[in-house]
């Protein structure tokens, strides 16, 4: 039954059991999946608001653009590739390809390590140059 039909029925008119012999949820999916879907929406709201806040801040006249965008784009690419590998490894677990899974998993761990190293080295470089935490934080925000 659609949501609209759900909220337009007159509950005082109909008596008796509505539905089948078993209790019914609103969704076919397992409860964990429903909860995860809602959580992902909540997490998306968090990151959307971060993005909106960041963009609004960028529009102010004293905004200082990033000094090393190339490094950050590289780090972002690492993150994307490692996420794809991680998802691929997860899908492999459903089949018998244990060796492929192990290989993909190790690859994505390696890429995550590279990403961490890239972030830290970039942060350290900024600090060594006397760049304030203000800029370092901008860096991290751009990645995530």
């Amino acid at each position: 039954m659609s949501l609209f039909k759900n909220v337009t029925v007159k509950p005082w008119e109909r008596k008796g059991v509505i539905g089948g012999l078993e209790p019914e949820g609103a969704f076919e999916s397992p409860n964990e999946k429903v909860a995860l879907s809602i959580f992902l929406v909540v997490a998306s709201v968090v990151f959307s608001l971060f993005t909106v806040g960041y963009i609004l801040r960028m529009e102010l006249p004293d905004w200082r653009p990033l000094s090393e965008p190339g490094q950050l784009w590289f780090n972002t690419a690492l993150l994307v590739v490692s996420s794809i590998l991680f998802q691929w490894a997860r899908n492999i677990t459903k089949s018998d390809g244990e060796k492929t899974f192990a290989l993909l998993f190790l690859e994505q761990v390696f890429l995550q390590y590279c990403l961490l190293w890239g972030n830290l080295s970039h942060g350290a470089a900024c600090k060594a140059r006397g760049t304030s935490w203000f800029q370092i934080q901008q860096t991290l925000f751009t990645i995530y």
């Binding site: 759900n6 909220v7 029925v9 509950p11 008796g16 059991v17 509505i18 539905g19 089948g20 012999l21 078993e22 209790p23 019914e24 949820g25 609103a26 969704f27 409860n31 429903v34 909860a35 809602i38």
Partner: peptide
Amino acid sequence: VVTVLQYRCRGLTMMR
């Protein structure tokens, strides 16, 4: 939220 959506007993529709 998930309890209300998924855990209602038999016959308990949202509008009940």
